[in-house]
Design a protein around this nucleic acid. Structure first.
Length: 369
DNA sequence: CATCCGTGGCT
DNA sequence: TAGCCAAGGAT
């Protein structure tokens, strides 16, 4: 027992314990089978704010479709968006495709193994750069993600707010002095794996943690109180109304070409203004944006959906055009129900699709009888 | 630096 | 249910 007056001895980070835990316990995930830079890169982009179980099937389909950067660079936009549909954060795939194009143009199709060059590619921030460079090129750069922030906050017994950018930088500097030059990728993955499997947000399994003996949160009984994360304000709820405009068995869809949900196809309509009825909102948006007048029929679906910073309630009405049809083009098309199924759609539209197709089918039957 | 960007699972 | 969380980056 050391006297209380002694200065706290500097703890040695339990590197060997961590790495042997990793060697024993690592999960056999698809992107860990063969660590080419492209596979690592794609997996890291998909895993941003997204669960491993969600990513696995997307990753396997994606690598079959685009086994090298050049294949992604050359692919048609709808093909790319369809491969990403449902994963969310669609700017990620746009950045990745732009980056793939740059890799083809500037590096002969080979992912650059130099951190300074790699990090200039769109979508390659500090985390992705460190992850790809350490795992596939053995550069000793700490990859600090949400798992690592939690593990290290507990290990250090730190009450600092992990949502702040400065805290991420601090953890990165701390780990830069610990990461072993021989196994930088394993070190990074081990810390993340530890956060995912053992040092979990709720009910951490300290009995199986290789850092437990050195963990300050555990010693102080603060495990469940750390890490500290400042709270975000609750997302607002908004009302949206859209129209399924049908003509000769086909359905009108438009493609979002900027900002939110960029590149996905949706039904025309939009957000209700204050005091506006759903039908008025649909008529207004279709006049403003498509220059078309509609006759609105019955409501065929009502879906709720939570986006990252707001929730929507979306009402879907059947409608038919009353004025000459707008010219179709790159961002406006008439599609059959089957084509509609195959287009990349935002979550709320996808969610409403069964009710819509069922409603249209039922109405066809009534018309026949 | 704070905010914006999707989605699904869990409590 | 409503809130929280998950291998972040761009602006």
């Amino acid at each position: 027992m050391k006297p209380a007056c002694m200065p706290p001895r500097k703890r040695r980070f339990p590197l060997d314990e961590l790495l042997s835990w990793w060697d024993r316990g690592r999960r056999p995930l698809p992107w860990r089978r063969e660590r080419s830079a492209w596979r690592t890169w794609v997996s890291e982009v998909m895993l941003q704010q997204t669960r491993v179980e969600t990513v696995i099937p997307y990753f396997q389909r994606f690598m079959l479709l685009f086994p090298a950067p050049a294949r992604l660079a050359d692919a048609a936009d709808d093909t790319v968006m369809k491969a990403w549909e449902g994963l969310g954060y669609y700017q990620r795939i746009r950045n990745l495709q732009r980056a793939a194009t740059l890799v083809v143009e500037s590096y002969g199709g080979e992912v650059p193994g130099n951190p300074a060059e790699f990090t200039l590619l769109p979508g390659a921030g500090p985390y992705i750069t460190a992850a790809v460079m350490s795992i596939s090129f053995k550069h000793p750069l700490p990859a600090v993600d949400g798992n690592v922030l939690r593990v290290i906050a507990r290990y250090r017994g730190s009450r600092a707010d992990t949502r702040q950018t400065a805290q991420r930088d601090r953890v990165r500097r701390i780990l830069a002095r610990v990461i072993p030059p021989e196994r930088p990728g394993d070190f990074n993955e081990a810390l993340m794996e530890l956060g995912a499997l053992v040092c979990t947000p709720r009910k951490p399994d300290c009995g199986h943690c290789p850092l437990a003996a050195a963990c300050r949160a555990r010693r102080l009984g603060l495990t469940t109180q750390l890490p500290v994360r400042s709270r975000r304000t609750a997302p607002p709820q908004i009302d949206v109304a859209v129209a399924v405009v049908t003509h000769l068995g086909k359905i009108l869809v438009r493609r979002r070409s900027d900002g939110h949900l960029n590149g996905l196809w949706e039904f025309p309509g939009g957000r209700l203004l204050a005091g506006e009825t759903r039908k008025d909102a649909i008529l207004r948006k279709c006049r403003e944006e498509l220059n078309v007048d509609l006759r609105i029929k019955e409501k065929i679906a009502l879906v709720r959906h939570a986006y990252s910073h707001f929730r929507i309630q979306m009402a879907v009405y059947r409608a038919i055009p009353e004025t000459p049809l707008p010219p179709t083009g790159e961002n406006l098309r008439w599609v059959t129900p089957a084509e509609l199924e195959s287009l990349p759609l935002p979550g709320a539209n996808r969610k409403a699709l069964p009710a819509i197709l069922e409603g249209l089918e039922k109405r066809e039957e009534e018309k026949r009888s």
